[in-house]
Amino acid sequence: MDTDHRPQTDGAVVAPDADAPPAAPPRIDCRDIRVFYGATQAIHNVSMSFPDRAVTALIGPSGCGKSTFLRCLNRMNDTIENCRVEGQILMDGQDINDHSIDAVLLRSRVGMVFQKPNPFPKSIYDNIAYGPRIHGLASGREDLDAIVEKSLRRAGLWEEVKDRLQAPGTSLSGGQQQRLCIARAIAVRPEVILMDEPCSALDPVATARIEELIDELRKRYCIVIVTHSMQQAARVSQRTAFFHLGNLIEMGETEQIFTNPREKRTEDYITGRYG
């Protein structure tokens, strides 16, 4: 089998997903990313780009570095001691690891949703309003109300919570909490949303809601999702990248990765064989 053949260049392959025109410039472009925890190298020279208005799924076995890589994109690795990131991550042509870029501002452009729904122990309203408040995005009370409503609407939660905005965020169900966290991320007007296994703590119905939401959000944002569920990656993403032992093994259109991976290690992983 030949490797490194992008489907676009292979005439025999059917046309890629029409929703994600490959011509669009990438939202984030990573070049030669290396991550070290102390002396151990967790990510080995990963280069990949993330197209705008599309979902990219990162899959791979536990400890393969996909979450670590995801956390490079909003510099959450800064908060971990001994963690060192090398290489370039370009957003609008600027390296986000550059000293001139403050992680706090970066994170307002690159939102993140976590594995376990982690709403703040505050009211639903304050959960959403917190971000716009600290970033000074709202000019007044009405403005803030509008942002809260818009964010909740986009997260598909407005109808469920509009009558109890002052109830604590933790009183919602797990799936609603996760959508609240997504709304919270949306409220600071990011361009990229990172999701670290957002459905691993949810039941299938709540998972389906989130997936539906992701599909909706992809029309506006560049979404990168780490997931353990290959079916989920197959369902929600347009592009899929397979990580193994800190290496990017293969990246391609989701359909191709799941029906006809180029690499044996990808094949073994997605079909559930001994790696």
């Binding site: 290959m230 799941f258 029906t259 006809n260 991976p261 990808t266 094949e267 079909t271």
Partner: peptide, 8 residues
Amino acid sequence: QPMGHDLR
């Protein structure tokens, strides 16, 4: 839920 070669 076969994938890859198994699916084909």
